[in-house]
Design a binder for these strands. Structure first.
Lengths: 160, 160
DNA sequence: TGTCGTGATGAAATAACATAACATATCTTG
DNA sequence: CAAGATATGTTATGTTATTTCATCACGACA
């Protein structure tokens, strides 16, 4: 299944269909969850889906403004926050940027693999990582709320 | 040994001696590595060592300025970058802030456990995490350069 | 001793990222 | 439809980070 496929970003794929699938899925999940996928929000998700790299809020904002939406920062930040809150996008702290989630609705808090060269970002499941962190947390007496794993390096395409 | 002790931040300890030890170690390592631990840089490290939490660049800058150093952002950013480059401090992306490294010179790229309540940050070794990420990277064909693991939650002291 | 190159520091200006606060519009439900 | 809740738009401002250029300190070495 397309959306369960990790690290789509690093592989050849039919990007239009990959985007459409995710978008459809997000719509369906919104209805199911009773949350409102409005026009700005949907458009914001579309914008993120146009690339497998992270976009800064201001970059998103420019494109929203070009489409006739508001042109002030809060417009972008609100839409992005909504998407992140509801699992349709992720925030990459390292880059001060946002990226569409490729597995909306599925188990979360993935690890991000960020290519230094081309900026591509891939999500990968992080069960193993999480296991290791849980052990460490137990040793420290620390209660984990959220986890952020960001890996920098070189993607297969740029490695040559 | 004090400096090899993970997660000092979450435990009772003699903070003065913990700071001094790290500072001495950093000095020694600098000489060894032929890098210049200048006055601003040393003072910056001292400032970071005064707390087991992450300080923003501007917070550091204020204190540097109060001590008679330059008062413009690059002063702080340069010193902080030097410390990070050379393993004497870490940058916590999540917090847009910096923290002294408690194990300078030792194997690196720790995981950070950040308390939402009190802001304390502890470093913990991350071999297990790294192992899991290496496996994932191998599957993706990704070559890892650096790893960033930031865990949010509640520290033992605040958990009560 | 002088001058050259290198790396460190200082300061000004600006860029990039993010939020607070408030007004207006739009849904949604009784 | 009215009232409340949610979403959008705008102004203003706050926070974090970098670019650029000038100056300074120091070692190498002719």
């Amino acid at each position: 299944m397309q959306t369960a496929n990790p690290a789509t970003a690093f592989r050849m794929h039919d990007h239009d269909s990959c985007s459409d699938t995710v978008l459809d899925r997000a719509e369906a999940l919104s209805v199911e969850a009773g949350i409102r996928m409005t026009r700005v929000r949907r458009r914001t998700l579309e914008i993120l889906l146009e690339e497998h790299r992270a976009l800064g809020a201001y970059e998103v904002l420019e494109r929203l403004a070009a489409d006739g939406f508001g042109s002030q920062p809060p417009v972008a930040y609100r839409a992005l926050e909504f998407l992140v809150q509801n699992g349709f996008a992720h925030r990459i702290r390292r880059l001060n940027a946002f990226i569409a989630c490729m597995q909306p609705g599925e188990s979360h808090a993935p690890a991000f693999f960020i290519c230094d060269e081309c900026g591509a970002v891939a999500e990968a499941p992080e069960e193993d990582v999480r296991g290791a962190l849980d052990k460490a947390a137990a040793r420290l007496g620390f209660r984990i709320a959220r986890v952020n794993v960001e890996v920098l390096g070189t993607c297969p395409a740029c490695a040559e």
